[in-house]
Nucleic acid binder design. Sequence first.
DNA 1: GAAAAAACCTAGGGCTATTAGGAATGTTAT
DNA 2: ATAACATTCCTAATAGCCCTAGGTTTTTTC
Lengths: 189, 189
Amino acid sequence: MPRVGLTRDTLVSAAADLADEIGFDHLTLAVLAERFGVRDASLYTHVRGLTDLLESVALLAHDEWADTLGRAVAGRSGHAALTAFADAYRAFATGNPGRYAATRYPVSPERLAASTGVTRIIEACYALLRGYDLVEPDATDAVRLLRSTFHGFSDLEAVGGFTADRDLDASWQRAVNALHHTLTNWSQI
Amino acid sequence: MPRVGLTRDTLVSAAADLADEIGFDHLTLAVLAERFGVRDASLYTHVRGLTDLLESVALLAHDEWADTLGRAVAGRSGHAALTAFADAYRAFATGNPGRYAATRYPVSPERLAASTGVTRIIEACYALLRGYDLVEPDATDAVRLLRSTFHGFSDLEAVGGFTADRDLDASWQRAVNALHHTLTNWSQI
DNA sequence: GAAAAAACCTAGGGCTATTAGGAATGTTAT
DNA sequence: ATAACATTCCTAATAGCCCTAGGTTTTTTC
């Protein structure tokens, strides 16, 4: 029989897609192997184990996410940058549930330090703040507030935590506008 | 040999404590059984299976959380109620990581509907808004904003998402004050 | 085309969840 | 008190997953 031609990248990429389909915590070596018509033991030539695979998916997700967020804020500032960032953030979370969940997988500090994804996301967050001119430590406080709100909303939405009979998009816009208001009036807080 | 005298409640309570110690996703029937010096198969007389146990822990966590949040807002209003709620929220998350993680376990809709925990949490959230006098749909938007910020911050903190060299408590206070500012100036948003 | 490297396989061990059925311990009724 | 019953906990066994060890086969390299 011919050889499938697996690669580490092929596996990680397919695993990320699989996570989006069946959920990150249902991602298993067995089901990934099955997708390629291969035995699970065969994956160990390309991947050190399940942990390695999951960490790799997490890092991939970070990178892809950083890309879209970076594109969102590029060339924009102030309110426009904020809404673009916010919408890109939420769109990634809802459109790629598996990757988004992977984002919270505990990657080893070494691998995390070797990757640029996370820092690029936070940098994009700082970048969008430039229009509001805040100085440290206010900028860090503001970044943490933004990330908390965006992440909290996206996560609660993903878990089905919002049940009230009210349009979610409207609530989201309100939240983003509230953040804009906060950032423009930061000195009064 | 004498009998251990297990109960469904004993198991669920011990499982919650265990989750706080070793992490919710390391909670397993085997380790729970071991804690009682019992075989894992013996747990099935009290619990339908792993899913049942995890769901029960989630519901317990919801209830306990609702209790503390309810106590926090009782007798307070406005800024005092907000900070009390916020601090109780974060304290629960950081002090009970296993229970907090359990909170996001997907409980079946039927069991969720039969429990009062989640609704009591949201009610406490609405209650603290009374001091800011908002009417629907603004109140729902505001509740969603509050929950998003609190949950996002707590979750990012739990995952180790905040790495900047800046006191976390200070950032938290800032976030809470920002929310207070938003709620008092809601009409301008 | 032979040697070396790499991809993939089979076999098997360990851990977990789960089911089936048996033994031991409480409890209730007479 | 003792017989009948109910319940707790057990052993045994299956299945699925992660993972290791070592063998075969394909591909590459010279």
